[in-house]
Design a protein around this nucleic acid. Sequence first.
DNA 1: GTAATAGTGTCTTTAAGACACTATGTA
DNA 2: TACATAGTGTCTTAAAGACACTATTAC
Lengths: 244, 244
Amino acid sequence: MTETEFLGSYDPQDFARPSVTVDLVLMTVRAGKLAVLLQRRSDHPFKDQFALPGGFVGIDEGLDKAAERILLSKVGLPASGWLEQLYTFGAPARDPRMRIITVAYFALLPLEVLGSAQELRHDLELVSLDVPWSGELGGSVSAQAAEGAVLPLAFDHADILGTAVKRLRGKLDYSTIAFALLPELFTLRDLQDVHEAILGSTLNKPAFRRRMLDKNWIEGTGEREQGTSYRPAELYRLKQDQGD
Amino acid sequence: MTETEFLGSYDPQDFARPSVTVDLVLMTVRAGKLAVLLQRRSDHPFKDQFALPGGFVGIDEGLDKAAERILLSKVGLPASGWLEQLYTFGAPARDPRMRIITVAYFALLPLEVLGSAQELRHDLELVSLDVPWSGELGGSVSAQAAEGAVLPLAFDHADILGTAVKRLRGKLDYSTIAFALLPELFTLRDLQDVHEAILGSTLNKPAFRRRMLDKNWIEGTGEREQGTSYRPAELYRLKQDQGD
DNA sequence: GTAATAGTGTCTTTAAGACACTATGTA
DNA sequence: TACATAGTGTCTTAAAGACACTATTAC
């Protein structure tokens, strides 16, 4: 029987179907390190461990729309520019209770935004990531509490985080994602700090500046930063229509 | 109610759930152009149009496993090395009959392999792709019959194909995917032809050779190709443990 | 003035593009 | 021998890394 024939006589009640969820990897840079917004679980399974915020996809709801709705309902943030589909995780036993396939999305948000989300919802916590050195990166990543202890992550969420970090590092150079972490006006040093935190390595200053200016993504404002105790740097802004 | 609470009282029958399928983008290079294996639909909707081979994901079946099973059952090919998850398409109306979320997978296979699959199954056809020039590539791609006419693609499968071509081009340079199209022994010219077909542009010969040799993926065999009417080229092979 | 960071000039290194050249097989 | 393609030498160009240097502001 071909798929077409199958569907022709298909009764939706006939076959068990998986549930589909969206999980959100919401990352930022804090104190020079990547950090992610996690939700502390209050029930079994994985009670008291951390998990990515997520929720079920509605029967008439697109995946991107579901991600935006969940961002608002579970995290309290409005859809903020981009939210990018990352990967779909569907191992049969990834949730011990039932078959759940999850489509992971990720976004980069300014520290203040994730910080305020954390303050409003007691189940949310912004956790720093402990990522292996830039070059090789295995499948997964570990999270660490403020004290440096390793936090256990629920389900396969360490794998999801590892995939997100890889994707982020891969896209850093040829996309404008990093600017999502910066205010409208920023200095080239700010931008370099963000890149270094994401990559987990230091970059060459003149080369970095040349590269950024050559890409023609940003423009100088002529303004300078304020309140420094040394020479203030020029402020730049991302040019319009540099969405992606 | 949090997700955790929700799941605690969750009865699987309570909510409508989407069906989940896997669709396969099986590509090769034929006559210097990308080609994809499509299935001619014999029923509505999209009767007589072409669609990617695909099938439902079993309730206890992982996504990768489902992709392999569908490769075997719908196309007649055993799991052949890699089959890579591409993207998940979940617009609510992408299938007019019911809500179906599809996880697209893609693989590159030698022309002979897809050719033999096509011969054994009358509903399958290997169709050349008409891809816009290498630089910009919109969301979708069109297929063309042998005569050059544009073939209509069912569902959102033109988008899926467009995504696959983009991914393929993006990975070409830093991965060993292209070797999946070549026999065990091949010449550097063969390899360059494959790259040029995928990219849709010509490449500089000395630069290409330098690049390939510097990557240290391949090794010369000392053997030369046979049956040419001119100087035969050296045969190379992909080194072991260059899986990805 | 000093301190501290912004910002640049320039040398070296690496790799790609261009293009002509030499090498080596078949017929 | 002629021919056709394999394979290379080398010049130019572009861009990254290294590193020291100058510039500018607060104090």
